[in-house]
């Protein structure tokens, strides 16, 4: 299994054009299903989504304070309680909603921005230098301190988190999309489209966008998992949405009340939840990448 995503070449783009008995999409899917890593992590992702959707059915509202302060895991409190007696299990189940909402929302926004900038830079030559420079500059800056500043100024809420994380994560997407789109815009069929007088919009939508769609799919998952980490990080620093539950906020409360060292369950379980979600997302996207790449797919069709 190759872990490194294959560097995109024009070959990948051309591959989609080939007509064979088995469509490329179903070939990719078959290879994906054969990889146990990919299947298990996809199942884990679905499980987390199911937990988030079913939160009101499987866990009580975590807001209730109780006298059971810092109770270790027991039959009554599966994952223990925190410093003011809130059930950790309930907080984690409800926190899955925040993590997924912020992760998917920020990722969607960052993908749209990043893909537009990346394709724009590759396609419109005049824009390439300034946009490329903007991407480089944004990528080299320490983003977390900047996110902290903006989140603190704009006031903590889920929509603030989504926008802040998206605004500072699109350059990574733009970089990948741009490098994938650069060889495509010079291919013969793109030139042919220009020659027959196709408008830019048509060429972009019909030729360039389909060629970079696979990297965008991988980016959605990776950007979402990074956004989950950013959300947890900001919440851990006390910038989470105060009206909803978040895995990072559980850790923040444990850190602030000084019970991290003594009440291990307040730190372990939210940490495990974050790890599970992000690792599953990463492995899913890698398995998809491997399944798409003829060299690592492991079937004879190349």
């Amino acid at each position: 299994m190759s872990i490194i995503p294959p560097s995109g070449t024009a070959e990948d783009a051309r591959e989609g054009m080939r007509t064979e008995a088995v469509s490329p999409r179903s070939r990719t899917w078959r290879a994906f299903v054969r990889n146990p890593f990919g299947l298990v992590s996809l199942a884990v992702l679905f499980l987390i989504v199911a937990v988030a959707l079913a939160a009101p059915l499987i866990a009580g509202e975590p807001g209730g304070y109780s006298a059971d302060v810092l109770a270790p895991p027991s039959a009554e409190h599966w994952l223990g309680t925190d410093n003011i007696g809130r059930d950790v299990y309930n907080q984690i189940v409800w926190g899955a909603r925040t993590s997924l909402a912020v992760g998917l929302g920020a990722s969607a926004l960052a993908i749209v921005l990043g893909a537009a900038v990346g394709i724009g830079a590759a396609y419109f030559r005049r824009l390439d230098t300034p946009l490329g420079m903007l991407i480089d500059v944004m990528l080299s800056l320490p983003i977390l301190p900047l996110m902290i500043l903006v989140a603190a100024l704009a006031g903590p809420s889920i929509s603030t988190l989504v926008v802040v994380i998206a605004v500072f994560s699109w350059p990574e997407v733009a970089r990948v999309v741009r490098s994938q789109a650069l060889p495509v815009v010079d291919l013969t069929y793109v030139n042919a489209a220009h020659v027959i007088g196709a408008p830019n919009r048509w060429v972009l939508l019909r030729h360039v966008l389909p060629a970079v769609t696979p990297v965008i799919v991988v980016s959605v998952v990776l950007t979402a998992s990074r956004a989950v980490l950013s959300e947890a990080g900001l919440s851990f620093l006390g910038l989470g949405d105060p009206s909803s539950w978040s895995w990072g906020t559980i850790l923040y409360n444990a850190q602030r009340s000084g019970v991290l060292a003594s009440a291990w369950w307040t730190a372990l379980f939210p940490s495990l939840a974050i790890l599970l979600l992000v690792v599953a997302a990463t492995l899913t996207s890698l398995a998809y990448n491997d399944a798409r790449n003829p060299r690592t797919r492991g079937d004879s069709a190349r």
């Binding site: 998992s225 980490l229 947890a232 990080g233 851990f236 990072g248 850790l251 850190q255 730190a267 940490s271 974050i274 790890l275 992000v278 690792v279 997302a281 990463t282």
Partner: peptide, 8 residues
């Protein structure tokens, strides 16, 4: 390692 959460 790339998926680790720093505070964790």
């Amino acid at each position: 390692g790339q998926a680790l959460f720093v505070p964790t």
